[in-house]
Design a protein around this nucleic acid. Sequence first.
DNA 1: TGCTAATCGAGACGGTACGTCAAGTCTTAAG
DNA 2: CTTAAGACTTGACGTACCGTCTCGATTAGCA
Lengths: 198, 198, 198, 198
Amino acid sequence: MNKQINAPSGRPRSIHVDQAILQATLDLLAEVGYQSMSIEAIASRAGVGKTTIYRRYTSKEELVADAIESLRDDLAIPDTGSFWGDMDIIINHAAQKIDSPLGRQTIALIISTASSNPQFAEVYWTKYTKIRREALSKVLKRAKSRNEIHKDADIDLVIDLLSGSLYYALIFKPITEPVEAYMRRTMNLLLKGIGHGE
Amino acid sequence: MNKQINAPSGRPRSIHVDQAILQATLDLLAEVGYQSMSIEAIASRAGVGKTTIYRRYTSKEELVADAIESLRDDLAIPDTGSFWGDMDIIINHAAQKIDSPLGRQTIALIISTASSNPQFAEVYWTKYTKIRREALSKVLKRAKSRNEIHKDADIDLVIDLLSGSLYYALIFKPITEPVEAYMRRTMNLLLKGIGHGE
Amino acid sequence: MNKQINAPSGRPRSIHVDQAILQATLDLLAEVGYQSMSIEAIASRAGVGKTTIYRRYTSKEELVADAIESLRDDLAIPDTGSFWGDMDIIINHAAQKIDSPLGRQTIALIISTASSNPQFAEVYWTKYTKIRREALSKVLKRAKSRNEIHKDADIDLVIDLLSGSLYYALIFKPITEPVEAYMRRTMNLLLKGIGHGE
Amino acid sequence: MNKQINAPSGRPRSIHVDQAILQATLDLLAEVGYQSMSIEAIASRAGVGKTTIYRRYTSKEELVADAIESLRDDLAIPDTGSFWGDMDIIINHAAQKIDSPLGRQTIALIISTASSNPQFAEVYWTKYTKIRREALSKVLKRAKSRNEIHKDADIDLVIDLLSGSLYYALIFKPITEPVEAYMRRTMNLLLKGIGHGE
DNA sequence: TGCTAATCGAGACGGTACGTCAAGTCTTAAG
DNA sequence: CTTAAGACTTGACGTACCGTCTCGATTAGCA
């Protein structure tokens, strides 16, 4: 009963080929960057015909999105019992991801593509960003319920500030301090605020 | 004593041509976007030979950077006497800049190019971003001296959060609310903080 | 035993394209001449990408050489039984070839290219000139065996004189008489000589 | 009375510049050949602005024609009293001219340009070829009057054969024998003829 | 002696064509 | 029907020269 809907006649697609393509894509992404990475180079690196790639993906964006998706790690949402306990884990995890050639290229790519191509902003948002936001969101909600942060704090906006400043710093500021330290400073500022309360 | 460093020989460069090139660049940037904008199209739109462009700029990035630079407005730093008075002006100014096809394209471009090309991050930082940061910085310092915000608040970091979240929202979030409203919400969050004081 | 040296993989070259390129080349050669004939024009006339031409030929010379080669007629060596009978046929054949826009352009081209490019002199010599010389040579040898011309006459040199003077006249002398007449006068002079015998 | 038609006011043209241009032209002609010789290169080699060249010549052909003209030697017509005496001088002179890089380039150029550009065939004919033909012509006429050659020999045609075969050999035949030897063989053949007389 | 006008070098200008590269489509033979 | 290979059209790239056009700076001869 669980036959494939349309019984595929002829030679089936090779999964080795699938993997070779994704791997070649990731390799080249880390080596030469998104812009200077040609489909032809990917094909040749993967030992595959161009046609074989075009049969699977209709654009470089799609291909790369899939390649990045392929190495998504299933981020376990931490639950240590304290806000800073959870945050430390999230921050360390993020920092570790970012501090590699592929990690930086990936972020640069996501921002770059997304900013000039709204329809791929959507794709990346779902495949990459959303997961992380959900983890953060859960952690913040728990902190709320533990009364560690204001119960009327705008969690979504907090995440915007946290993520936004991180990306902003990664793009525009030469590396002055470790990613972890920067994120902790940010979180602290958000906790205390800069006004005088009433 | 006459400071003529190098008497320029040969026919001098035409400023009409300079302007035509920059204008064509801005037009096309708004119309078709950075990626699909060819030097050939710019040349033809400007009524100019390709050589004439290549004589001035060695890359599309350089050209576009200069074009954007050319429409830099000399942002007067507001001084209304109150923090929110100043902020309103800055926010309105920013919103007005952003809410135009060219404005959005420009921001997308800056982020996109900068994120995949560190050396142009530098250029844009200086030509475009720095000026706005300095205005914000001055306003925040004055607010500090008026005791409207904490005197030990990390101004640089505050600006990172403000700018970062704005860019982040512009890229990843479909337009749900006016830019002004979003920026005001952000500023409020920063003032109050999300923690419970000491 | 099957002599297929390298089994060709990939899409084979299209013979339609081959022909279109050669035809466009010959057309333009006759219309605008060798110098002002651009590869781009040939490509567009043939309805073909520039790359497709560059895949086959590395230079305009090569392309044109091949185009000319393509219209080589398989000159049948005449054998009428008499020297002048044979010569008449050869002369008429030559004259007919020369008296057309393409014919003149071809000769001009061959001489022009060959004189400034020794390696193409070689090509043209083999593809174009040699065949005609061989025909002439055979005819002259038969005339020798029939005792119509001296048995110690230097046939190669005779052909040089015949061909050389023809080309020379074509280049430098405005058309005063039909090609046939000129060639016959030349041949006569060669037969009689200008000296007084021994 | 014999004043220059239009008294030239303003700065007169510099003869140093004239010479520098011609010299640079000849140098480059011998070095890189006619085709790959750009006006820009000539100007730069001569230490002269492009305008200065275009003020004097309207085309590369004109310029080169003048450069070649500038080194015309005033071929004295020999008169030794015997046909072969005169011929030896002419042959030696020709051979000496031809056996140098510039000499070969010049001939190649003349033939090449002339064959693809009838209006320059005219120019070269007058400036270069005609002089040599007249010398030959005079020598042949004297030989006639001395009864060394037939009195009804077609002198013009003889010269065509002599010149034509020489050019032909220079272009198409790899150097097998000295120019002098070849010319002497040709002359001999012409004297004796290849037929059997009546 | 100073004026006038064409010259000079330099190099910018709008163009044309170059030869290269990659994009995405297509056509083979082999599996 | 997929695959690897590679030919195909298209279009932009960045370069080299073309012939024309400004520039400021020399020069001569005429006034």
